[in-house]
Write a protein that binds this DNA or RNA. Structure first.
Lengths: 192, 192
DNA sequence: CCATAAAATTGACCAAAATCAATACTTTTT
DNA sequence: AAAAAGTATTGATTTTGGTCAATTTTATGG
């Protein structure tokens, strides 16, 4: 149980057996079926979720009811509405399973205790958030400075697994495009 | 010296006088004149810079030589090419002073030692990167889900100081727009 | 295995933003 | 104070992506 979580943790910060079992006490497993929600807009986000298995999406909805995917969460990734989690404000994102998924949940109180009691947990957190930040930064750079075809080519290069497992219109949503436009971008790329 | 830096630090994590003077040993002040560079694309980013005074911009350039601003750094903000700093890969961003500026620099070795020796520095770092992450996330959400006029309105609401002090075409660049388009957006907003 | 739903493609048309070019306005430098 | 450099606005035109609608393709649940 929690295999991937601890493999990931140990890759970043090596844990002793005692530390590992200490941390285990703070974790909760959760399974979600496809289309089930981990979080709905307006609720307070009570947990950070580490994805052991499956894929989820975090998305916001605009006035016209269109969904805009802000993040995918695959195996090994962490997904949450971090702002809501940290501030207890209502969430602006929905988090929904795209496939049947298995999660490791860390509640707010668990998170806070772990930060106080297990220094390596703070390091783990810092490294995770740093990764997430760098990923976002690359994404913005790509949005504001690369032509569409390049952006999509880069996307499939970095996330071949997402392309395999996620419907195309969700990738369009993630890229801020209509499904039709992404379809045309793909055709343009393939006819070269 | 380093007033804003330590005010900021203490707001996030309260330091004792000893800790404060210990940390001081790792800091280096630096002044930049307007248009001078802290970092040029291709160089290795050797420092994290905390802005005591002034404004800087971090930007990438595309094939056609257009610059794309990924981040502004004002008083109280941290600016760096973090990826380059952490990995020693060549920087993809240029960092340039928009006004005469005063910086507090933290070198790579200082950063690493501080992380090991001063636990509160790790917390400070974690909180900073968390803020930066949340800021980026809001920015992407806004890009992929809000109409232009709303995006600009939100921008001037959140960053009135940037609007005051930075030429408009740089804000356009930050938003991923041509200067002409931003000018027109502004006109549309003002005639309502 | 079929029926239905979901997803992707394609075409026609429309809207938004980029580009190009000219001009006005502001700031900085000398 | 004049010249130069930098900045912002405006108009005309082109390009890009969005919208709407129809059709094909693929996936899924009974």
């Amino acid at each position: 149980m929690y295999e991937l979580f601890f493999r990931n943790f140990n890759n970043k910060v090596k844990l002793s057996a005692e530390e590992e079992s200490q941390i285990k006490n703070y974790l909760t497993p959760k399974k979600l079926r496809k289309k089930q929600y981990l979080l709905q807009e307006g609720d307070i986000c009570k947990t950070i979720a580490f994805v052991e298995k499956g894929i989820l999406k975090a998305y916001s909805t605009d006035e016209q009811g269109n969904e805009h995917i802000i993040q995918f969460g695959l195996e090994g990734w962490i997904i949450s509405d971090l702002y809501s989690f940290l501030t207890n404000e209502p969430a602006v994102y929905n988090i929904e399973a795209i496939e049947d998924s298995e999660l490791v949940l860390i509640s707010k109180s668990a998170h806070e205790e772990l930060l106080l009691k297990v220094p390596k947990y703070e390091t783990f957190t810092r490294l995770n958030i740093t990764n997430a930040y760098l990923t976002m930064q690359k994404r913005i750079t790509s949005i504001i400075s690369s032509p569409l075809e390049e952006r999509y080519a880069k996307f499939i290069e970095i996330y071949p697994d997402i392309v395999q497992r996620v419907p195309q219109h969700m990738i369009a949503s993630y890229m801020g495009l209509s499904p039709e436009t992404l379809s045309r971008v793909r055709r343009r790329i393939s006819t070269k």
